[in-house]
């Protein structure tokens, strides 16, 4: 049974782990170079993209392979506006214009797909194609979007005339990620979240109980578009460079793999998987060069077979098992600790 305050309940091992992880992220800029702070900032924006995909795939059961398109649109809109239309305040570009544009896209695409009741593998294929189309459009428009070379030299954002340093951008990205996580945690724990799981478990049954599942799917798809748009926008301001692969299906599918490895349908698994694999990617690809890709592939296969609920699910099973054996006398404690992947 889901505990209502699972996100902040200090008694559970999962909450302790989350808080330790958060503190590590908060302290990170103190220990690494400015360059690495920027790198980790981009990890955080991809983690936000992973969260948005987990909402759609993990909770609602709609495997989207096209979310990079919405991330990339957020990034390109931001690149164009920050470079060429300085009148619009930067903060409005990141938190209003980019998410609104991405939301309009997901709303239109979602309306089209859900009213035709496209689901299952057809949904995955259609969203994949959208991603491919967007990537090739960005590659074609050399004059306006920079073609395959993309757009360089996107400035950092300014807030009331002060340009954000790498560290400030990092904390902004971390704040947005944590805020989004807490918000989504409340959402999936509500009766609304239960309907999403109902759609995932049995869409027709849910429909015939009286839920307008088309409306629910559209709301969640659009919300995830908003998040992907903000994530892409922040990425553009941090990295200073956008190019067609940011919209492409390689990124789309990569993030899905991160979520599967971390633990689908848990939110924290998406964040954990995204940060872990990006970190391993940057450290191990230097050491192992091409073998890293194979290592990642093997890790993915191992998780899919050995731990279908991802690393987070595996850890929670281990913690539960240990608790069940150690604390067999104190049943209340077990009950409290049993819920890990909220």
């Amino acid at each position: 049974m889901a505990t209502k305050d699972a996100a902040v309940n200090l008694k559970t091992p999962s909450s302790v782990a989350k808080i330790v992880g958060l503190l590590a992220l908060v302290a990170l800029p103190l220990f690494v170079s400015e360059y690495q702070v920027s790198t980790w900032s981009t990890y955080l924006t991809f983690a936000l993209l992973a969260l948005s995909i987990d909402l759609v795939w993990g909770y609602t059961g709609l495997l989207t392979l096209g979310h990079a398109a919405f991330f990339g649109v957020g990034a390109y809109v931001t690149a164009k506006l920050l470079k060429e239309v300085p009148v619009v305040p930067d903060i409005a570009v990141v938190f209003i214009v980019a998410p609104v544009v991405a939301a309009l896209l997901t709303l239109a695409l979602g309306w089209f797909l859900f009213s035709a009741d496209v689901k299952g593998s057809y949904f995955a294929i259609t969203t994949l194609i959208v991603s491919i189309i967007f990537e090739s459009i960005a590659g074609e428009f050399v004059g306006f979007l920079g073609g395959f070379n993309g757009i360089y030299g996107i400035p950092s954002i300014q807030v009331v005339g002060v340009e954000l340093t790498a560290t400030m951008s990092y904390y902004l990205a971390l704040g947005v990620l944590v805020g989004s996580y807490l918000f989504l945690n409340t959402l999936v724990d509500s009766a609304f979240g239960r309907v999403l799981r109902g759609i995932r478990g049995n869409q027709e049954r849910t429909e015939f109980f009286g839920y307008d599942t088309q409306q629910y799917r559209l709301i969640i798809f659009t919300l995830s578009g908003v998040m992907a748009g903000v994530a892409g926008s922040m990425y553009a301001t941090i990295d200073g460079f956008v190019s067609p692969p940011l919209l492409g299906f390689v990124l789309s599918t990569q993030v899905v793999i991160w979520i599967a490895v971390g633990g689908r349908g848990t939110l924290i698994g998406a964040v954990f998987g995204a940060l872990l694999i990006q970190y391993l990617n940057s450290t191990l690809s230097d050491v192992l060069i091409n073998y890293w890709e194979m290592g990642l592939a093997l890790l993915f296969i191992a998780v899919v077979i050995g731990a279908p609920r991802g690393i987070v699910g595996l850890l929670s099973d281990i913690v539960e098992g240990v608790q069940a054996t150690l604390v067999s006398t104190s049943r209340n404690e077990i009950g409290a600790g049993g819920e890990v992947d909220d």
């Binding site: 209502k4 409340t186 509500s190 009766a191 609304f192 309907v195 409306q215």
Partner: peptide, 10 residues
Amino acid sequence: PWKLLRTHDD
């Protein structure tokens, strides 16, 4: 949906 979003207590 909007009402259910605010429903946390059963």
